[in-house]
Design a protein around this nucleic acid. Structure first.
Lengths: 328, 328
DNA sequence: CTTCTGAATAACAACGTTGTTATTATTGTA
DNA sequence: TACAATAATAACAACGTTGTTATTCAGAAG
């Protein structure tokens, strides 16, 4: 069925070891022979057998991604980016949506070179794994593997701080998820902490809950929020999708941005799509995250020492969606 | 690094071939020896090396899923279900989000036993693959691989037919996507065809476009729709999420379901979550799809002949969200 | 007390590849 | 012309596993 180097060898009239070298572009094979062999391989539609190759070389050039929460969209953009990043390093990405322990066992059997695990709320400590693991998500101290994480707490804090610096006193955060979600919790905590340490009045500067992170949830929450006697002058949104809904609700209430309300959105996407007003954002650009992840992966593969907790610092990108409180 | 059967053999004082047999539960090994070996294997944390195993057995017990459009949520529930289904057949699922041809090459190198490819609008004919392929999506005739598909056209047609049978004359379909998406097109075509062949007035029974399939899009479209002088008495929704928005918009307009408007939603989920009124649906239950996919996969793996085009017929589930036009 | 039978285990080849070592062909030099 | 030295290719072992074949050993039968 599958065409092997032996088939090519026979067809080219050389030994199979020569074929192997030719295909790996070894200098030990004469140039004309090499090109002839490569040509034949292409003609026969040869695909190297990973099993055989990784059996002898103990390398598979593959990264396994453990992603049990496929249904939550959160990480899909990140995984897409990581996939691209790794492709450039000539690694192939395989994804398992099974439960963490099972997935890790699978990848161990497959001898992938490293594993990326997305932190799940109910993930047990990944069992004994021969393959090195890198986790992404909330860095908890007990984890024995290097973790790459975004400093979400700091992100929201920066946003609050910025709003205060331009005179805002009533700053709300939209995006508290009722269900347990550590990533969201971090942001909420960042906000509460900031309110406290900056001495804002918690009556006006409060957290608004939503049932999910989609556009409609932001819309709904903001509608309610704007009915307050004294609505906020600045809003921080917990996600890009929420922001879309927030904007919609603001416009429907015949208010304008930034004149009546300033807004900053937590976001990983660098340039936000064409809204009426370009949206200010705070967060770590996706590419920075994937680059760091790829870097750490290469480190653990090459057995190099890595920092155990890597916190990526968010960037604040201010556009016309923010304005000083007494500037209009 | 990895512990092999030879390590176990040494530790148990037997030959490695005996270990292999013991772990595969062969009757050629005496019971006490067997249990002793298994015990040692467990202690050492042995994980069989897939590379070696699939090299000799030419089987990997793995199914590859090609899913380049990870960012579109459409198929995530389906893949989750398929994963479960295959797990029960003791197959492992691996996913690649790379472009079709690349992904198929990868899976060929990995010698997966079969590949499931989700039809992508711009998928070229999958190149020469040693591994059998099953596609899911719109069945186009030129494809040389078995295809499993849902008869979306028929689904929408059934809904129209049902509405007519209970007296509705003004029936709208919400869910035309502006971007090219063959799955959506099928539904729209089913609607248009039904309107024509059933002799409905295309002025009142029309297609409403949305920019995406999310809740807010349904909300927005319906808001506009209800402003018509003569809005429809029945609405067919193109997706579950759209339906949520449609319901919301109807209620906000102080209309009631089914008194003022009847609604049927295209959906793959059998029992729809707790809305105010349980939602009527038409579609093929997810489980039926995954079962069929798994079945076809097993067939192609075992080299059995399969039907080339498998169309799953949708089911209509009517609840209180529908009512005869002159019944209230 | 041999010889046979069958159970239990050991030894070995094979899977497709890579890296190392051995062999042959080619060239340059005395 | 003979002999290194080197280039090009061939042969071979190894990776960890499975399935087949060979060996050992106990007990049964003669």
């Amino acid at each position: 069925m599958g065409v092997t180097i032996k088939d090519i060898a026979k067809s080219a009239g050389v030994s199979y070891s020569t074929v192997s070298k030719a295909l790996r572009d070894s200098p030990l094979v004469k140039e004309p022979t090499k090109t002839r062999i490569i040509e034949i391989a292409k003609q026969l539609g040869y695909q190297p057998n990973v099993a055989a190759r990784s059996l002898v070389s103990k390398k598979s050039n593959t990264i396994g991604v453990v992603w049990p929460t496929i249904e939550r969209v959160t990480h899909s953009a990140l995984i897409t980016g990581l996939n691209k990043q790794l492709e450039q390093l000539s690694y192939t990405t395989l994804i398992s949506i099974n439960e963490m322990e099972f997935a890790i066992n699978t990848f161990n059997r497959y001898q992938v070179d490293a594993i990326v695990a997305f932190d799940d709320r109910n993930s047990k400590e990944p069992a004994n794994s021969t393959v090195p693991i890198v986790t992404y998500g909330i860095a908890h101290d007990q984890s024995p593997f290097p973790t790459v994480d975004v400093n979400r707490r700091q992100a929201i804090r920066s946003a609050v701080q910025y709003f205060m610096s331009i005179g805002h006193k009533r700053i709300c955060y939209v995006g508290d998820l009722l269900q347990e979600d550590r990533l969201q919790e971090e942001k909420v905590n960042g906000f509460k902490q900031a309110v406290k340490s900056f001495g804002l009045d918690p009556y006006y500067s409060r957290v608004v809950s939503v049932s999910d992170l989609e556009q409609y949830d932001g819309y709904e929450a903001t509608k309610k929020l704007l009915k307050d006697r004294e609505p906020p002058t600045a809003v921080i949104s917990g996600s890009h999708d929420l922001s879309k809904g927030i904007l919609r609700a603001v416009y429907e209430s015949d208010l304008s941005i930034p004149h009546d309300i300033s807004i900053i959105s937590y976001d990983n996407i660098p340039a936000t799509e064409n809204f009426e007003v370009p949206l200010s954002t705070v967060g770590v650009p996706l590419q920075l995250i994937t680059e760091k992840l790829a870097e750490v992966l290469m480190d653990v593969i090459n057995g190099e020492e890595t920092e155990k907790r890597i916190f990526l610092e968010p960037e604040l990108k201010i556009t016309e969606s923010c304005q000083p409180i007494n500037g209009g």
